[in-house]
Simulated assay, not measured.
Amino acid sequence: MPDPALNGFHHVALICGDYAVSKAFYTEILGMRIIAETWREERRSWKLDLALPDGSQIELFSFPDAPPRPTRPEARGLRHLAFRVRDIEDTIAALAAHGVPCEPVRTDEITGQRFTFFADPDGLPLELYEDAG
């Protein structure tokens, strides 16, 4: 059987609790670019397509009465979403300027890369992973 020839991620889909708050967080604080914003009347739901400079995307959905995440971060499913950054200290400072706290920086014992965690408005664990390349 041939390899599936996966080339990377196209997008990650997230469901938020407060659309306006999450939209502002991902666009104004994290600086993601809006590709498209669609109101889906039949679902009473917004779908916001966001892009990072490398072309990867996040689909941000709002659904009425979506249940909260059961635990953090060890529940089944998505554990966290990691963003590649050039300078972790600069990125932490930019987040702090918006009132977004980060955990202390740690070093990955396997790769030697520095990383930290923070959370989006719904408590979704997000990671900053310093790309030394």
Rank of each mutant, 00 (worst) to 15 (best):
M1C: 13
M1S: 15
M1G: 15
M1E: 11
P2N: 12
P2M: 13
D3F: 11
P4A: 04
A5G: 06
A5R: 13
L6Q: 06
L6T: 09
L6W: 06
N7Q: 15
G8Q: 06
H10S: 14
H10R: 15
H11A: 03
V12L: 15
A13K: 12
L14N: 04
L14W: 05
I15A: 14
I15E: 10
C16W: 00
G17C: 04
Y19K: 03
A20S: 06
A20V: 05
A24E: 03
F25R: 03
Y26C: 02
T27P: 00
L30W: 02
G31S: 07
M32A: 07
R33N: 12
R33K: 15
R33W: 02
I34R: 01
I34E: 15
I35F: 01
E37N: 01
T38F: 01
W39N: 00
R43L: 14
R43A: 14
S45D: 06
S45W: 05
S45K: 07
W46C: 02
K47N: 14
K47P: 00
L50A: 02
A51C: 09
A51V: 03
A51L: 06
L52K: 09
L52G: 08
P53H: 06
G55C: 11
G55E: 09
S56Y: 08
Q57I: 10
I58H: 03
I58Q: 11
E59I: 13
L60W: 04
L60M: 09
F61D: 02
F61K: 09
S62G: 03
F63T: 12
F63H: 15
F63M: 13
P64Q: 12
P64T: 11
P64A: 12
D65F: 09
D65M: 08
D65W: 09
D65T: 11
D65Q: 15
A66K: 08
P67S: 10
R69Y: 07
P70F: 04
P70S: 10
T71C: 13
T71D: 12
R72S: 12
P73N: 08
E74N: 15
E74G: 11
E74D: 14
E74P: 00
R76S: 12
R76K: 11
L78H: 10
R79I: 14
R79W: 12
H80V: 13
L81E: 02
A82R: 01
R84K: 13
R86T: 15
E89I: 11
D90G: 09
D90V: 15
T91I: 14
I92K: 05
I92T: 08
I92E: 06
I92G: 08
A93E: 12
A94G: 09
L95F: 05
L95M: 07
L95I: 10
L95K: 06
A96D: 13
H98C: 08
P101D: 05
P101S: 05
C102I: 08
P104S: 04
P104V: 07
V105N: 01
V105E: 01
V105K: 04
E109H: 03
I110C: 00
I110L: 04
G112L: 05
R114C: 05
R114W: 03
F115M: 04
F117D: 02
F117C: 02
A119L: 08
A119G: 02
D120I: 00
D120V: 02
D120W: 01
D120M: 06
P121N: 06
P121D: 09
P121L: 02
P121Y: 03
D122P: 05
D122W: 06
G123Q: 07
E127Q: 10
L128R: 04
L128V: 05
Y129K: 07
E130D: 10
E130W: 03
G133Y: 07
